[in-house]
């Protein structure tokens, strides 16, 4: 069983988001990066499957050299080896092309990733990878089990309930909670991660389909106006004339 887990490098959930002066780039200054939390569900489930059934888990990241600490973390958690595609992840299509290129070379049984990255929230890469490889894509799944060596059963959330899907290997799936309980690495894992293979490859010549014109932050929420209960009529006036919601 060969499993590929794609991980993104994203700002820590508590990071303060700022942009450069021209509003065209994200300001990385002082921002701590983590493995995309949704990808951690995929990674941990892949490691659980490996522990139960044997096989290997490869992690893949499309990113520049500064993502390597988080790739090492994935290795410390239990992945066997890693590939870094040496490129800034320009957009979803660009990333999907890189993943598909690696997957074509290595024929994985399962390709897993988080349902979306928590920075751009694109929710696109998994489906694009499935399409580019011509294999099924099940997304977003909160449960993944192998029925046998050729078939998996996944459960995905749908409006008002869940859908149980059976799919033949190979396939792509995206993960959301509670697919697994993300693991904290241990000191032994951190030490052994030093020597696990991390291969750096150059990107295939794919073009991004989009480019960032500008970033902006949501407008700050206005203050709260307190209305005296004896003067409820004023509330109606304000809602009608100022907030313009009536």
């Amino acid at each position: 069983m060969k499993i590929l887990v794609c991980i993104s490098n994203v700002p820590d959930t508590t990071a303060k988001i700022n942009f450069t002066a021209d509003n065209k780039s994200f300001d990385k200054n002082g921002v701590q990066y983590v493995i995309n939390p949704w990808d951690e569900y995929a990674l941990t489930r892949a490691i659980e499957l490996k522990e139960a059934k044997g096989g290997t888990v490869t992690v893949l990241n499309v990113g520049e050299a500064d993502t390597e600490p988080n790739i090492r973390k994935a290795l410390a958690i239990g992945a066997d080896d890693a590939i870094r595609v040496n490129a800034y992840p320009k957009d979803s299509f660009f990333v999907a092309q890189q993943i598909a290129a690696i997957a074509k070379e290595n024929s994985y049984d399962i390709i897993l990733m988080g349902k979306e990255s928590i920075d751009y929230n694109g929710f696109q890469v998994h489906n694009m990878v499935g399409e580019l490889l011509g294999i099924p894509s099940v997304t977003p799944a909160f449960k993944l089990d192998l029925l046998d060596d050729t078939t998996a059963r996944l459960e995905r959330e749908i409006e008002g309930g869940k859908e149980i899907v059976e799919v033949k290997l190979p396939f792509v799936a995206s993960a959301q909670q509670p697919m697994s309980e993300p693991r904290i690495p241990n000191m032994r894992g951190i030490m052994t991660a030093r020597t696990k293979p991390l291969k750096v490859v150059e990107p295939v010549g794919a073009e991004a389909k989009t480019s960032i014109a500008a970033y902006s932050k949501p407008e700050k929420k206005g203050g709260v106006k307190m209305i005296d209960p004896e003067n409820a009529g004023e509330l109606i006036t304000l809602l009608r004339n100022e907030a313009k919601v009536l």
Partner: peptide, 13 residues
């Protein structure tokens, strides 16, 4: 980087 990973690991723990 390894020291920082150890710190984050223990912080999470």
């Amino acid at each position: 980087d390894e020291h920082k990973l150890i710190r984050q690991t223990m912080r999470d723990f």
